[in-house]
Amino acid sequence: MPPSIDKPVATSPIDKPVALVIGASRGIGRQVAIDLAKKGYAVVVSAKSTTPPSALKSLSPFPPDPNSSLSTITTVAHEINTLHHGCTALAIPCDTSDPTGTSLKDLIAATIKAYGHLDVLVYNSGAIWWSSVSGTPLKRYQIMQRVNADGLYAAVQFSLPYLHESTYGGRIVVVCPPIYSRFFRGKTAYAMGKTATGEGDGVVTRKGGMAITGIWPAVAIESAATAKQMKETPKHELRRDLRKATIFSDAILGILNAPAEKVNGELLLDEDFLRDSCGVTDFEKYSCVEGSRPRRIMPRKLPDLTVEEQDDEGVRYDSAAARRKGGAKL
């Protein structure tokens, strides 16, 4: 049976679109949350890392380095509420690796209780381990699957009842790569989970007004993940090949502003979408080092995964419906 959703009553419904950003304590997720708030969204900032409220006053500098462990959902929400006039943010912790999904279910319930509705879900949470199969312990692989694939599935499933009711259209944006064979080289276990998230676009493609979209950087973005690489590579050399996280948040804002039918089910690259659909021509402003030309890490042309019989689904079998009628045992 589908999971039961006990809809909580909002303490004070808010009259603006609500966006939940999961994986928003640092780097890309932090920037997305900030820019959504600047554009008029009430934002829920979620991840595992938190800071005791009593420690906020002692943070110096503030805001902390967005790619360091000092940046948490508490500091991000505080940054939005105090440094950006008229912006609204709430920090709600969540563990996307929870195998029961309870943490994500509670997150969605807390969002509704606080704001009354949910209009945008951004799933940026990700566990990273780049190595060969022989170099990836089974436990590490299982953690990545729980965070990258299972966590997304749970977040989408528990969000759908509210996204269907959204008066703003209901959007899901997933940070996931388009699928092509080269992506699996040298990081097979990680790629298995991340490309699986890209296949989630089937969940709402037939719901009018809603859309689910995958987005991935064409050029590496400065983040907590790339910060780890700086320990082995001179910082000034590495940053020449990096872009600011603002290119990613700009692309997500562009996706949310686009007609649902234009972005629904698409797996996009930030630079290409901004150029082709948003009219952006100046990408130098996104470079971390002025005057540099960061190397593109994604193919310029991606494979088309559709087939000639794309719209021919034949006779569809619904296991959930069959079970309700007593016809299925699993």
Rank of each mutant, 00 (worst) to 15 (best):
Pro3Ser: 03
Lys7Ser: 12
Asp15Pro: 01
Asp15Phe: 03
Lys16Ile: 03
Pro17Lys: 11
Val18His: 01
Ala19Met: 03
Val21His: 07
Ile22Asp: 09
Gly23Glu: 02
Arg26Phe: 03
Gly27Pro: 04
Ala33Met: 10
Ala33Val: 09
Leu36Gly: 11
Lys38Val: 02
Lys39Thr: 15
Lys39Ser: 15
Gly40Ala: 08
Gly40Phe: 01
Val44Trp: 01
Val45Gly: 06
Ala47Val: 03
Thr51Ser: 12
Thr51Cys: 11
Pro53Ser: 09
Lys57Thr: 11
Ser60Thr: 14
Phe62Leu: 02
Pro64Ala: 04
Asp65Val: 08
Asp65Pro: 10
Asn67Pro: 09
Ser68Tyr: 01
Leu70Ser: 14
Ala77Lys: 00
Glu79Gly: 01
Thr82Lys: 12
Thr82His: 02
His85Ser: 15
Ala89Glu: 01
Ile92Gln: 07
Asp98Tyr: 08
Gly101Ser: 07
Gly101Arg: 04
Thr102Glu: 13
Thr102Trp: 01
Ser103Lys: 08
Lys105Gln: 15
Asp106Ser: 14
Thr111Arg: 07
Thr111Tyr: 02
Thr111Asp: 06
Ile112Asn: 08
Ala114His: 12
Ala114Leu: 03
Leu118Ala: 07
Val120Pro: 10
Asn124Asp: 11
Gly126Met: 14
Ala127Phe: 14
Trp129Pro: 04
Trp130Glu: 14
Ser131Ile: 06
Ser131His: 14
Thr136Gln: 00
Thr136Gly: 06
Lys139Asn: 15
Tyr141His: 14
Ile143Thr: 15
Met144Asp: 05
Leu152Asp: 02
Leu152Met: 09
Tyr153Thr: 13
Gln157Pro: 00
Ser159Glu: 09
Leu160Arg: 05
Tyr162Cys: 10
Leu163Tyr: 04
Leu163Asn: 08
Gly170Trp: 04
Arg171Asn: 06
Arg171Lys: 08
Val173Lys: 08
Val174Leu: 15
Val174Phe: 01
Pro177Tyr: 00
Pro178Cys: 07
Tyr180Asp: 10
Ser181Ile: 13
Arg185Ser: 14
Lys187Gly: 08
Met192Ser: 09
Lys194Asp: 04
Thr195Ala: 02
Ala196Arg: 03
Gly198Tyr: 05
Glu199Cys: 09
Gly200Val: 10
Val204Tyr: 06
Lys207Asp: 14
Ala218Arg: 14
Ala220His: 05
Glu222Lys: 12
Ser223Leu: 03
Thr233Cys: 03
Glu237Pro: 01
Leu238Val: 02
Asp241Ala: 01
Leu242Cys: 00
Leu242Gly: 06
Thr246Val: 11
Asp250Gly: 04
Ala251Phe: 02
Gly254Tyr: 05
Ile255Gly: 00
Asn257Tyr: 06
Asn264Trp: 04
Glu266Asn: 01
Leu268Arg: 05
Leu268Asn: 10
Leu269Asn: 07
Arg275Ala: 14
Asp276Thr: 13
Ser277Leu: 03
Gly279Arg: 02
Gly279Ser: 08
Lys285Ala: 06
Tyr286Ser: 02
Ser292Gly: 02
Ser292Thr: 12
Leu302Thr: 05
Asp304Ser: 13
Leu305Ile: 06
Glu308His: 11
Gln310Met: 15
Ala321Lys: 13
Arg323Leu: 11
Lys325Asp: 13
Gly326Lys: 07
Gly327Pro: 01
Ala328Cys: 03
Ala328Met: 10
Lys329Leu: 10
